[in-house]
Design a protein around this nucleic acid. Structure first.
Lengths: 275, 275
DNA sequence: ACTGGACTCTCCCCTGGGGGGAGACAGCAC
DNA sequence: GTGCTGTCTCCCCCCAGGGGAGAGTCCAGT
């Protein structure tokens, strides 16, 4: 008699999926054997499952998570399926674009390891701000940053208020314990701001900052950080609080990133003396 | 007095690397603290280490392995460094290209889940071949496949011999125990072949095959596998050995992939009867 | 019917790059 | 002295399986 089902080894050879992977897909429910021998526990697959297995392998070759593969296979209609696939492809494209820009920045950093940029001292008084504070993982800061600023600008404008200073952010607050990353985006406002949703009205403490400006996209910003660190080292100044950044250009109004400006403020102890 | 070193928390804020990551980099020797308090075990970093930490973060953002980052940082000269960075960028580019092609193939598979392609039965006698056999991980098969075939063509030609049949490969041999993937690439030759290096002279056993042809790049090949599986299922034929593939077109002479041809052979039990 | 070898089973530990948390010290301001 | 926060080490967790141990199964040959 000719068996109409395949052993796990035969199925592995027919699908180019390893036996280990097949067992894992069974365990995780992504691809269940057609039949399991009650006595021996041997898995048996049907030939009709081979095309499905090929599809799974293709997706896994793309590093699509097993959960996402299951979602695609269980998607109701082709539209939803294409949407899911498209989303994954967009993620890959994003990653690649980010990689290219970061590589350029890296070459720059490595080839000009110690660039001197003008450093300016700035005394910031206590400031009343509309703010958003959250624990954000470092990898997500870019996205969160954009969203929070957009919300601040929109809400302040919607309340008919004017901004009374530079938009900015503060990172690594240490207000909460633990190693979480507390980040705050803020927009200075006058009296009358009404906190809505996650937005708060708060007061930023006064600080003395050593400030370096960076122009252009965020990718090249490490050079500014490096220059600042070198300056601080030369003048033997310690870090006296969370880093504060300012964004003099409204990035939602000015789309061309070459005009963007980031001012990085490194809090220092007020000394008054500069050599 | 102003401390000239930073605690791990301050250093974390200055570099945007998490405290956990910094401890891990210390443990793995990628970035060692400038000083460790003998009594308390507290780590102390110098401001001069900040630019280095930024560089490390950039590389890790690119998913470059910690080992590779260390290699780049310890590289003797900029040339070697650029070479290492370039290699990583090329890997990213390769992945992205592969992803794009695989996505196209996937859409095809999902939109035409059951394509009928002509299936042909073929009886292959025992064949004398020059061959390369190795345990190859599935992900590496593409590369290994190219190299092995090129070596076979070159060596056979160098010995002044003619090929006496179609080049091909055999996958999932099962000659060795375990779940390893045994793959063999072969080129039929007449008498007089001298095995050199990893090349062997061997005899492939006779088989009866159900064969489907696929034209073009390897990316669309899953459709052919699917059609073959459907055919085999309809005719209740079991898999009777490792999959064999044939490549009638020499891919090193014909660069245009649209002319490439892959014949997939699914071993079946010889029955002589076809309904 | 028996034997040997190939095949498969489950179970456990391992990878990389950290994240999350427990419990114990350390340092600093009041 | 008394909190509070920061930091230490140690342990378990993630994904997608890989590697191997030890035991049970299947099948072909005798």
């Amino acid at each position: 008699m000719r068996p109409s089902t395949l052993s796990i080894g035969d199925f592995s050879r027919a699908t180019h999926l390893s036996v280990k992977a097949l067992r894992y897909y069974h365990e995780s429910g992504l691809l269940e054997p057609a039949e399991i021998d009650q006595h021996s526990g041997y898995r048996r697959y049907e030939v009709e499952q081979i095309p499905v297995a090929h599809i799974i392998r293709r997706f896994r070759d793309l590093d699509m998570p097993v959960e996402a593969v299951r979602a695609v296979l269980h998607a109701a209609d082709p539209t939803e399926r294409n949407e899911l696939i498209g989303a994954h492809l967009r993620r890959l494209e994003d990653e690649y674009g980010r990689a290219q820009r970061a590589i350029a920045s890296l070459r720059d950093l490595l080839e000009h390891p110690s660039t001197d940029l003008p450093v300016e001292h700035r005394s910031i008084p206590t400031t009343q701000v509309a703010s958003v504070t959250a624990d954000v993982r470092r990898a997500d800061i870019g996205v969160w940053h954009q969203g929070a600023l957009a919300e601040l600008y929109a809400t302040v404008a919607a309340q008919g208020l004017a901004t009374t200073g530079l938009a900015g952010g503060q990172f690594g607050d240490g207000l909460f314990s633990g190693d979480g990353d507390t980040a705050t985006m803020f927009l200075p406002v006058g009296a009358g701001f009404e906190p809505i949703g996650r937005l708060e009205l708060s007061a930023l403490p006064a600080v003395d900052l050593a400030v370096v400006a960076h122009v252009g996209e965020e990718d090249g910003i490490d050079r500014a950080y490096g220059a600042l660190a070198a300056y601080v080292a030369r003048h033997a100044l310690a870090l006296a609080g969370p880093i504060r950044e300012f964004y003099p250009v409204n990035r939602h109004q000015t789309q061309d990133a070459t005009y963007w400006r980031t001012e990085i403020g490194w809090p220092i102890l007020a000394t008054g003396q500069e050599d």
